[in-house]
Design a protein around this nucleic acid. Structure first.
Length: 224
DNA sequence: GACCAGGCACATC
DNA sequence: GATGTGCATGGT
């Protein structure tokens, strides 16, 4: 597809989504730190379950870098249980906290001052943070202009024949970053609108028509 | 009871 | 490099 057409189509998609759903006010979180924790908890999990986990942390007044850093794995896992994969996610959050304190002394403002490429590299080196989680943190918690790609984005574009079924995370990210304005507010709203659309209309389709097996696989090991 | 949800790492071939 | 699997809860 010619570049001029890609730009037109992506702009039209955005306009229609915005007209249909309006402003999404993402990310749902009261602080950058809460957004980071939410981004890790929402991995393969319904947001309403994440809210329960975040609510547990808030009720105990534990949603600060220092307090969460001091919490044991067992306590953290118990509190985030409603978000599923609680043992795994507790470990992943602790991995992030180790990095966050070692590199930025638990200070979000210091982290925000780091350049995007370096931050991305650092986040991806944390066990448990992949491309989508890293980009969600960069965009929604740190206010950096990067486009977040998720399973909904791939389904949406693939069904409109904008991308190939085999396109990977970075192919899709590049499509947006090269063809829509490099504007963090636009990236914020666009991704949120796609998620909103996906929740309502963009369910996984069966792998084949004659059986119930589904193909929701969206490999995260994407070449840079 | 089956399926799905705002992924990721690791094992295996 | 590509594919399969474990991780787990709560809503529909």
């Amino acid at each position: 597809m010619p570049r001029v057409l890609k730009r037109k189509v992506l702009r039209e998609f955005y306009n229609r989504l915005f007209q249909a759903f309006g402003k999404q006010n993402w990310w749902p979180g009261e602080s950058a730190f809460e957004i980071i924790i939410g981004a890790m908890l929402t991995q393969n999990t319904n947001w309403s379950n994440v809210e329960k986990a975040i609510c547990n942390l808030k009720k105990q007044n534990l949603l600060t870098p220092q307090k969460l850093h001091a919490l044991s794995h067992a306590c953290l896992a118990k509190l985030i249980k409603p978000a599923g994969y609680f043992n795994l996610k507790a470990k992943r959050i602790q991995n992030f906290l180790v990095y966050f304190f070692k590199t930025y002394n638990g200070n979000i403002s210091s982290m925000k001052r780091q350049r995007i490429s370096r931050l991305r590299e650092e986040l991806l080196s944390v066990n448990g943070i992949g491309p989508e989680t890293a980009d969600s943190i960069l965009l929604y918690a740190l206010g950096k202009p990067v486009f977040v790609v998720d399973a909904y984005t791939k389904r949406f574009l693939s069904r409109h024949a904008i991308i190939d079924e085999n396109s990977d995370y970075y192919d899709i990210q590049r499509l947006f970053m090269e063809n829509v304005s490099n504007d963090r507010q636009l990236f914020n709203e666009y991704h949120a609108l796609i998620v909103r659309l996906g929740k309502d209309y963009c369910r996984p389709k069966p792998r084949c028509e004659s059986c119930s097996l589904r193909n929701t696989h969206f490999p995260n090991k994407m070449k840079v």
